[in-house]
């Protein structure tokens, strides 16, 4: 009994357990029930809080003094800032400046969510469709609202391609509408699928290394090192892609093509 418990603990902390999906389990740390609604503080929420704290401290204390010759932390914070500032300027345009704080917060949250998830034994909250879809859906609603407020009824011209004959409207408008509604789906599925697939693959190959023993396990171990590097790339790239697509959707809503 005690041995069984010990091996279970090793599985969850070693990162190389034989159940590759074990890492995605959500378990409550602090049980909170309000009116039959389960809003427990889970390991997922814990890592979201950690991601928020880390990104906040990096910007607040990293770029803190703002010296002319930057320290290493300040350099990191400033290059992240410039990357997103450039992204907003290039993809949204100059009137996108006022949305920069939102875009930057989103990017930092996703970046640290993905990157902190690479720590063995941690939890990757972006590998859950519930999290990514909630993010994508709220972004979608906000961007649609921005477009509606800015353009009024003219916003709906987004659903009719410029220059198409009027007779094709009954088919084109529903298709464009569905295409527009599929944006949050593709946005969230892309992030979630990439993170989940990568992490599952890591665990599957790690369990090969364990099962094949000391001699046979070397080949999967070498592969594992390579895939871990690739996973870091994917973690950063997917945060970037999510943010850039948000910028592109915002551009569409502001400028209507």
């Amino acid at each position: 009994m005690a041995g069984n418990k010990g091996s279970q603990a090793a599985e969850s902390h070693g990162g190389g357990g034989l159940d590759p999906l074990h890492q995605f389990e959500i378990h409550p740390i602090l049980d909170i029930q309000i009116g039959g609604l389960d809003i427990s503080f889970t390991n997922s929420s814990l890592w979201m809080v950690i991601a928020a704290i880390v990104s906040f401290s990096l910007i607040r204390f990293g770029a803190g003094p703002g010296s002319l010759v930057p320290s290493r932390w300040q350099l990191i914070a400033e290059s992240l800032y410039t990357t997103i500032a450039d992204m907003v300027r290039d993809n949204v345009g100059n009137d996108g400046k006022k949305y920069f704080p939102f875009i930057f917060t989103l990017f930092m949250f996703l970046l640290f969510g993905n990157v902190l998830g690479m720590i063995p034994g941690s939890f990757t909250f972006t590998s859950h469709i519930a999290v990514t879809f909630a993010l994508a859906a709220s972004i979608f609603v906000v961007i649609t609202a921005i477009g509606l407020v800015k353009h009024g009824a003219k916003f709906f011209s987004l659903f009719f391609p410029h220059g198409a004959p009027i007779a094709t409207a009954p088919i084109l408008i529903p298709i464009e509408l569905i295409s527009y509604l599929s944006r949050p789906v593709s946005l969230s599925v892309r992030l979630f699928a990439n993170m989940m697939v990568g992490h599952t693959l890591l665990k599957v190959i790690a369990s090969f290394a364990i099962m094949l023993g000391v001699v046979g396990g070397i080949a999967p171990l070498v592969l594992l090192v390579g895939i871990t590097a690739l996973e870091f790339l994917v973690a950063i790239l997917q945060a970037y892609v999510f943010t850039i697509l948000t910028c592109i959707y915002l551009h569409d809503a502001l400028h209507l093509h």
């Binding site: 569905i178 295409s179 509604l181 599929s182 944006r183 789906v185 593709s186 599925v189 892309r190 699928a193 990439n194």
Partner: peptide, 15 residues
């Protein structure tokens, strides 16, 4: 490839 597949499946799924 993944990007195109996801775009395709998302459109179909919403429809």
């Amino acid at each position: 490839g993944l990007r195109i597949v996801i775009e395709m499946v998302a459109g179909l799924a919403v429809g």
